[in-house]
């Protein structure tokens, strides 16, 4: 009896959580000037509108550029730092790890205000490179968390064997540890990319006139309810679900591969 009540409750709450997803698609397919549900006639009009409107296309390109740049920077710096955090012992390790991960926990608006003040002083507001680096800082916690986790599970004997066989430290790392880390790099890269791609508050403060996709949506929302937004939302959702699924598959494949690897059990 209790199980049935709980099951009904589970379905209801899950429905509540998925509510936006369920309604977004039909709303985005409307043919009318206004948001309506149910739509009177179906069309891809607002999807077309997105690709015709230069400001939407530009915003998407800016977001992609910043997203890829921030992902690359955070992956590189985050991975290097993770190697040091896992493989060496020093007194400030705890504090340093906390600092690397803190941007994830500190409310974005605090970071936004802080960055805005220093960026104004350094004349970096409205600068796409500065924005990219700021996004890299926001994305780095994901990289550090995932890569340190993965590195701790790596069997160091493999890299040691490569060193004993005469490889330089860098060469040994590239040929043994890096292949092991690839799925983790991929997964953290996806998270880092979306951390940047979805970031709104910090971008609103320091972007000046520069419009990323979330800022473009935000500016649209404060003016009117434009039916292009649901269309963009559906496309974004599909892209992120796709990205996360690919990341998850990569993670699992790796888990299986290294579990059945006889060397690591030695």
């Amino acid at each position: 009896m209790t199980r049935i009540v709980l099951l009904v409750y589970f379905v209801l709450v899950t429905g509540f959580l998925l509510l936006p997803l369920i309604f977004l698609l039909p709303i985005s397919l409307t043919n009318s000037q206004f948001l309506e549900f149910p739509p009177k006639s179906l069309s891809l009009r607002w999807y077309r509108e997105f690709f015709i409107d230069q400001s939407w296309v530009d915003a998407t390109l800016v977001s992609l550029k910043i997203g890829f740049g921030a992902t690359a920077i955070s992956l590189l710096l985050g991975t290097l730092a993770s190697v040091a955090l896992v493989r060496s012992n020093f007194r400030l390790k705890g504090i340093l790890t906390a600092i690397f991960i803190a941007p994830l926990i500190i409310p974005s608006v605090v970071i936004a205000l802080a960055l805005y003040i220093v960026f104004l002083r350094w004349r970096l507001v409205n600068n796409i490179y500065a924005l990219t680096i700021a996004h890299a800082m926001i994305a780095m916690p994901y990289v550090v968390m995932i890569i340190t986790g993965s590195l701790r599970r790596f069997d160091m004997t493999i890299e040691r064997a490569a060193r004993i066989l005469g490889a330089t430290p860098v060469r040994a790392f590239i040929h043994t540890t890096l292949p092991f880390l690839t799925p983790a790099l991929f997964a953290s890269g996806i998270l880092a990319f979306f951390a940047s791609f979805d970031e709104l508050i910090i971008t609103l403060f320091i972007s000046g006139g520069l419009q990323t996709l979330p800022v473009r949506i935000w500016n649209d929302l404060s003016l009117k309810l434009d039916p292009t937004v649901p269309a963009v939302a559906v496309m974004l959702t599909l892209v992120s679900i796709l990205g996360m699924t690919v990341g998850e598959i990569a993670r699992r494949r790796n888990e299986r591969r290294y579990q059945s690897n006889p060397i690591s059990e030695a």
């Binding site: 959580l17 998925l18 936006p20 997803l21 977004l24 979805d198 709104l200 979330p214 949506i217 935000w218 937004v229 939302a233 974004l236 959702t237 992120s240 679900i241 996360m244």
Partner: peptide, 9 residues
């Protein structure tokens, strides 16, 4: 699932 959609949307 809803976690993968941006907060804004």
């Amino acid at each position: 699932l809803p976690f993968w959609i941006s907060v804004l949307i």
